[in-house]
Amino acid sequence: MRRLTFILPLVIFAGFVGATGWYIIEIQRDSQRAPNIINAGEQNKPVPEFDLPPLMDGIPGFATGDFGSQVVMVNVFASWCIPCRAEHPLITRIGEDGIVPVWGINYKNKREEAIAWLEDLGNSYERIGFDLSGRVGIEWGVYGVPETFLVDRNGRIRYKHVGPLTRSDLNETILPMIECLNTTPQVTECLSGS
C-alpha cells in the first residue's frame, strides 16, 4: 500500500504524457490534412442550428438561415481575450477592405464591455451575434477564443483557424481559401489545394 503512494506521481505523469502525446499527434495529423485545422470535427459540416440576437443597435445578429448565399468569415471574439485584441486590427481591415463579409460571435462577454471594446478598437463586423452563455459557441465547436471560421456558399464550414490570425495566415491560407471558395464549383478541392 505504502509503495503504491510512491508510484502515484509516476502514474499521474503517465496520464499527462498520454493526453498531450495524443494531442500532438492529432495536431500533426490534422496539419497534414489541412493546415491549421486543429479540430477537424466541425469541418465540412453545415453550420449548426442557432439564432443569435444582435449585440448592439444598428448591427444585426444572425442565424443559421442567413448563411448560404455568399462566403462568410465568422470571427469569435470577446473583450476579455487578450489575443483577440492582437488580431482585431487585421480582422477590422478584412471587413473594411470588403475582402469577405466578417460576422462576429461575441462569446461569453458582458454586453457593455463588448460594446466599449469595439468602440475603442474599431468595428467592421457586418453582423454581430451576442452569445452570452457560450451555448452557440459550443455548437460551433469553439473551445478558446479567438477562432475564425470560413463558411462557404452552401452554408458549410470549410475552414477553422484557432488562435489569433496573423498577416501571414491571412495571405498564405485564408485569402487563397476565400478565392477558391468563391470561384470553384467543387469546394472540396479547396482543402487540398491550399
Partner: peptide, 15 residues
C-alpha cells in the same frame, strides 16, 4: 491544461 483535457477526453466544452 483544462482545454487540453476537454479535447482529449471529449468532455463537455466549458471554458
Amino acid at each position: 491544461l483544462f482545454p487540453l483535457m476537454v479535447d482529449a477526453f471529449d468532455l463537455p466544452k466549458i471554458s
